[in-house]
Design a protein around this nucleic acid. Structure first.
Lengths: 304, 304
DNA sequence: AGATTAAATGACTCCGGAATCATGAATCCA
DNA sequence: TGGATTCATGATTCCGGAGTCATTTAATCT
């Protein structure tokens, strides 16, 4: 009769088990999800096993003395996550509370591109609460794909080609330095040679490129500080009077009469795009077409 | 910690209750869902009430001595339906069983347009099982909107404008009659006057138009049978040698050397479209882009 | 009014499955 | 090799909520 009778014909399915499995899947293994609580440990182990029995498929795989989630497990986790989000959305929107929308991007994007337009964004989302989550492009793409994130802003080259995207503009890097450092007509090279700088700690994809370029130009800047993020770098430029290379969108951070910037010679601009989770897009409580609206708001002119 | 903790912070949510509510919502009221079983009656009443407590919103409304489902209730039902489908799909596809895809349309479309191309359709759906469900356009649109159906084929004018659609072609009506009935050069009128006919029982939107036209032309066909569907009409044309008005796509039913057809003079062609449920479209086990593939296969030339 | 139908509610029983604790088995690490 | 980590499993308790039946409330029909 009912098309879902067969779903409940076999026992072993319950919200609790789905919830437990989701926790394990998010944590990656049981120990991490259980957080040294032996009760949770045994519960998780058992419930995952019961779900595997229900779906007749291995959701986990033993690797060494721990387990990891199989592809099928991740698929199921995505289904569960979506489902719980929808129920939660429904409840929140019925209660008249704002739905919350998760957007992932790099810290520099969040601080210098999203936050300055935050009000317009929440407006476009019908008053939803925006939760900004900082992570690297690959992680954002994965998050959007499996429903942990509703939106993401990433380099276009990190987006799998079948995923829909909205172009926002390009971002390159520029040298930021106090006005005084820029002697009349002097270029980037001159500032780097003469003015003390701040730099990122080695590690990122950008740092590679940057130090390679310095080497090729036989430039040896005087580095007074090494920090771990662009936002910290910006703070150094602002308050310590150092020069530094930052993403172009960092201009919003500075008073144009005190800090000037100039693009780097090897500065190849990277196109950035907004991506969105297909199913989150028409969640209860969100206006239709929100990704397009959001993209329009967040788009910037590519200052080439 | 976990974003869904608040969903489970309050008790009152369970798969059983969601399932019960879905049954009630599909039946329209408790009595119908309970089918005179007093146990189910009290269970349904109670569980619906518990869900209303959980979501803090009225899912039902009393009207007369029965209840009906509120707008919010229908929204929730759609969420549940989608969720159960996904879990079911996941299980079925894990078990290697073909996912089943529900397509709704009028009987004549199903029999004369879809079924002749059934193999190609299931191919485009990655071997899914196609479930063909017969219902009228408005009902199909509603079904696709709330997730009961994955696809539908309906008159374009029945589709709300925000819903995406794929054009398939137009369908008009034509008079079908044995070759012998068509004297050299004689038109539709002549056949109607001379040859015994079969007709639909009064009721449909088509019948209205058809009898109106007959009246305006002062045509009084000799009606030997009245039946309740086009498919039955076609059977009469085929086996009883009667003439009848059928949708143009019924040509596939007949041997062109025995039965001829001609369009009706007032025959205004109706554009037909494929519609699809946005979320069903990328269900587990279905190839991407399936609606576009399906549309390509089902498209016919408009024989104007 | 009385009869009938639909839903809500009270008052239970009973069971699935969650919670808990203890222990076993496999793997890794020092 | 011995101890630590991680997961599996056995055994038992306990509770939420499903199942059941009887009764009440309310609207509708005749």
């Amino acid at each position: 009769m009912n098309p879902f009778d067969r779903l409940f014909a076999v026992s072993g399915l319950s919200l609790d088990r789905l919830r437990s499995f989701l926790e394990v899947a998010e944590a990656g293994n049981i120990a991490r999800a259980a957080k040294a609580d032996p009760t949770r440990q045994s519960q998780f182990s058992r419930q995952v096993k019961e779900l595997e029995g229900f779906f007749v498929v291995a959701l986990t795989r033993r690797v060494g003395r721990r387990i990891e989630i199989t592809t099928e497990g991740h698929q199921l986790a995505a289904v569960i996550r979506r489902h719980f989000s929808e129920l939660d959305d429904f409840r929140e929107s019925m209660a008249g509370r704002p739905v919350s929308v998760r957007l992932g991007a790099a810290a520099s994007i969040l601080e210098w591109t999203v936050i300055p337009k935050l009000a317009a964004c929440t407006g476009a989302l019908g008053g939803a609460t925006l939760e900004l989550e900082q992570s690297r492009s690959a992680e954002v793409v994965r998050g959007v794909a499996d429903g942990r994130l509703d939106f993401g802003i990433v380099r276009e080259d990190a987006v799998p080609k079948e995923m829909k995207r909205w172009k926002l503009g390009t971002i390159g890097y520029a040298l930021f330095a106090p006005k005084a450092a820029w002697k009349k007509g002097s270029g980037v090279d001159a500032v780097i040679k003469a003015h003390p700088m701040a730099d990122l700690l080695p590690g990122g994809q950008f740092h590679e490129q940057w130090s390679g370029w310095l080497f090729s130009q036989s430039l040896r800047p005087k580095v007074e500080a090494r920090v771990s993020s662009f936002t910290q770098l910006a703070r150094l430029v602002r308050h310590a009077g150092l020069a530094a290379v930052l993403p172009e969108n960092a201009v919003v951070e500075f008073d144009a009469s005190r800090i000037l910037s100039a693009g780097l010679p090897w500065n190849h601009e990277r196109p950035m795009v907004l991506i969105g989770n297909a199913r989150s897009l028409d969640r209860a409580g969100l206006p239709a077409k929100s990704p397009a609206l959001l993209a329009r708001i967040l788009t910037w002119k590519s200052n080439a």
